[in-house]
C-alpha cells in the first residue's frame, strides 16, 4: 500500500484539485481582483450559457471539427500508406523509418515557428516554390480563407510519425502466410491491401484514429504560435479560445475560459470512453 500512496496523493493534489478549481472557476464570476482575493460571485451555469450563446461559439466549434477531422483523416491515410511501404524490408528501411520520428520528437514550438517562416507571405519558401509554378502569393497565415488550412497542414505533418509507428507495429501482427495465400489466389498488391491488410488492421486503425482525435482536440501550441487563432477567429478552435480568454490578452477572463475548457473535457471524454470501450472489447477477444 505504501507503494501506491504517493501516486494517490499525487493524483489528488495535481489532477483532482486543479480540475476541481477549474469547475469552480467556471461556476463563479472571477474578475482578476476576485481571483487574488478569493471572493467571487456564484453565478451557476451563466458562464456556460454566455459561451454557448456567444457569436464566436459556432465558428470555434466548426473550426475544431474541421481541424480535428481533417488532421486525423489525412494523418491516418499518409501514415498507413507509409507503414505499408515500409513493411517491405528494403535496404535502409529501418534507418529511414527512424528518421520519420523526428517531427514528433521536436518541441512543438520549434516546428510551429519553422512552419510560420516557411508560410510567410513574402519570404516564405512555400510561396516561392508555388510562384515558380505561376501560382500567385497566398497569404497562408494572415488571410481568413487560408489560416485554418495552414495550421491544419502543419498539424498533419506533426501527426504522421505517430500514425506511422502505431500502424507499422499493427502490420507486424498480420501473419505473412495470409499474404502468401492471397498471392497464390492471384491477388495483386492492391487487392491484398483491401482484402487482407485493411480489414485485419481495423482494430488498430480505430485506436489510432480515436487517440489522434483526443490529442488533436487539445492542440494549442501549434495554432497559437502560427496564427494565435486569427485573423479574427478564423483559426480559433475551442482550445485556442479557452487559452486566449485566460492567458492570451492583457485582461484575463478565467471564468468563461474555464467554462470552454470544461466543455472541451466533456467532448474529449465522450471519445475517450469510446476508445476505452473498444480497447476492452479487444482485450476480451
Amino acid at each position: 500500500m505504501a507503494f501506491v500512496a504517493p501516486l494517490i496523493v499525487y493524483l489528488l493534489l495535481f489532477y483532482a484539485y486543479p480540475l476541481y478549481r477549474n469547475v469552480e472557476l467556471s461556476l463563479h464570476d472571477y474578475t482578476p481582483r476576485a481571483f487574488v482575493q478569493g471572493d467571487p460571485e456564484f453565478v451557476g451555469f451563466d458562464n456556460f450559457a454566455d459561451v454557448i450563446s456567444s457569436s464566436a461559439f459556432g465558428l470555434a466549434l466548426r473550426n475544431t471539427a474541421v481541424f480535428t477531422l481533417v488532421s486525423i483523416t489525412v494523418q491516418y491515410a499518409i501514415g498507413l500508406a507509409l507503414a505499408v511501404f515500409f513493411r517491405n524490408n528494403f535496404r535502409l528501411s529501418g534507418v529511414l523509418r527512424a528518421m520519420f520520428l523526428v517531427p514528433w520528437l521536436l518541441p512543438l514550438i520549434v516546428s510551429a515557428s519553422t512552419w510560420s517562416w516557411m508560410m510567410n507571405s513574402e519570404n516564405g519558401i512555400i510561396n516561392s516554390v508555388l510562384g515558380a509554378f505561376g501560382i500567385g502569393q497566398i497569404n497562408w497565415l494572415t488571410s481568413p480563407e487560408w489560416a485554418l488550412a495552414s495550421v491544419t497542414i502543419a498539424n498533419i505533418w506533426l501527426g504522421i510519425p505517430f500514425n506511422l509507428v502505431i500502424l507499422y507495429s499493427g502490420l507486424q501482427n498480420i501473419p505473412d502466410d495470409l499474404y502468401e495465400a492471397a498471392a497464390l489466389d492471384g491477388a495483386n498488391a492492391w487487392q491484398q491491401f483491401w482484402r487482407v491488410t485493411f480489414p485485419l488492421l481495423r482494430p488498430v486503425s480505430a485506436v489510432t484514429l480515436l487517440l489522434g482525435l483526443i490529442y488533436t482536440l487539445k492542440v494549442v501550441d501549434v495554432i497559437w504560435v502560427m496564427t494565435t487563432g486569427g485573423p479574427g477567429n478564423a483559426s480559433t478552435t475551442l482550445s485556442i479560445w479557452s487559452y486566449r480568454e485566460a492567458f492570451g490578452t492583457g485582461q484575463p477572463e478565467f471564468s468563461p475560459a474555464a467554462a470552454i475548457g470544461n466543455l472541451l473535457i466533456v467532448i474529449a471524454l465522450v471519445f475517450g470512453f469510446v476508445y476505452l470501450y473498444l480497447r476492452r472489447r479487444e482485450d476480451r477477444a
Binding site: V4, I8, S242, Y243, A258, L269
Partner: peptide
C-alpha cells in the same frame, strides 16, 4: 487506478494550466 490514469491522459492541458494557475496564484 489504471482506468483513472487513462482518463487523466485525455484531459486537455489548457484546462490543467488554468487549474494550476488558480492554485499557484
Amino acid at each position: 487506478i489504471a482506468f483513472l490514469l487513462l482518463v487523466a491522459q485525455m484531459i486537455p492541458s489548457v484546462v490543467m494550466a488554468m487549474g494550476f494557475y488558480a492554485i499557484y496564484v
